[in-house]
């Protein structure tokens, strides 16, 4: 009988195949972005180009403005959004976790209802465009993702169960008000839950294209995902980006649009791929926090 401390080879083989299946699509677009033009038209996209060429990346470097700008929008929105999300979520959750807060029950219900019923796209769209008038501003990218009822309850549970009541009580007995308690006792003790919800918020903002699709039509405010969306869906937009970056007009008969498009996708995936391995364990931890929420 097989020893219990060795992985069965069939299981290892299975996971090697599964891992390859997860990674191979990324490899494909990476290779397409580095394929020479002749090879591309003759053989199409392939996992190992017949001819390497970095013309697409030279195009991007030559006039990097549109993609850099969209990176900037994404970074700005993600940074502001995540900080604001953590503040709003934790302050509401803190209030809801305090037993002496008279509105605790009412406000918990108030949060819960938002998780059960939504008004639908049209009224939501009208609130942002006709009431707040935030279309074509960065606020339209930040506000919708700020607060989720689920996160509020996850944090409230954390505050109520993982912070010893005695710590809070003794602080209050020493004369700390609720503000003091929140900022200097509860928040510093809640770094694990703040880190997890912060990470998910970062991913949410970074990957968001929906709010741009609905609210943004000024191409100076395109975030990275929406920029990519437009270069994929709209051939004219891709052409206009390529035109702006026109360097080797004399030597190239055709602009390397296909490679250019895929090179942009590669550059967009790169930061995620670089950061992800280091943060992976927090994501896993976060998922399990969510799963055992009360």
């Amino acid at each position: 009988m097989r020893s219990d401390n060795r992985t069965h080879p069939a299981i290892d083989l299975f996971f090697v195949m599964a891992s390859l299946a997860c990674l191979i699509p990324f490899w494909l677009i990476l290779m397409v972005s580095m394929t020479g033009q002749n090879a591309l038209t003759r053989y199409g996209y392939s996992f190992w180009p017949a001819q390497f060429d970095f013309v697409a990346y030279r195009f991007l470097l030559h006039d990097a403005e549109p993609i850099l700008r969209s990176f900037g929008v994404s970074i700005l929105v993600t940074a502001i959004g995540t900080f604001a999300c953590l503040f709003v979520t934790s302050s509401l959750a803190f209030s809801l976790s305090r037993k002496e807060f008279p509105l605790r029950r009412f406000l918990s219900l108030y949060v819960l209802v938002t998780m059960l019923f939504g008004g639908g796209l049209l009224p939501w769209y009208l609130v942002y465009t006709k009431l707040l008038h935030v279309q074509n501003t960065l606020l339209a990218l930040i506000i919708p993702g700020l607060l989720s009822g689920f996160n509020v309850f996850v944090m409230r549970t954390f505050f109520a169960t993982s912070i010893p009541p005695s710590v809070v009580d003794s602080a209050q007995m020493d004369g700390a008000g609720d503000f003091r308690t929140y900022f200097s006792i509860v928040l510093p003790l809640s770094l694990p839950v703040l880190a997890t919800i912060g990470l998910f918020s970062i991913v949410g903002y970074w990957n968001d294209w929906f709010t741009s699709l609905v609210f943004i039509n000024n191409d100076k405010l395109y975030n990275l995902q929406y920029f990519l969306y437009n270069t994929l869906m709209n051939a004219q937009y891709l052409q206009s980006i390529a035109d702006k970056a026109h360097i080797d007009a004399a030597t190239l008969q055709v602009q390397p649009l296909e490679e250019l498009r895929m090179a942009m996708a590669v550059i967009a995936v790169l930061p995620v791929a670089l950061v992800f391995p280091f943060l992976q364990k927090y994501f896993v931890r976060g998922l399990t926090i969510g799963a055992v929420k009360g």
Binding site: L92, F117, G119, P123, L131, L146, L147, D178
Partner: peptide, 18 residues
Amino acid sequence: LALPGVVLLLVNNYLPMF
């Protein structure tokens, strides 16, 4: 402390509900 969250839910969730 609860106010910012309450206002956000009002705008983002309750107004559309109505």
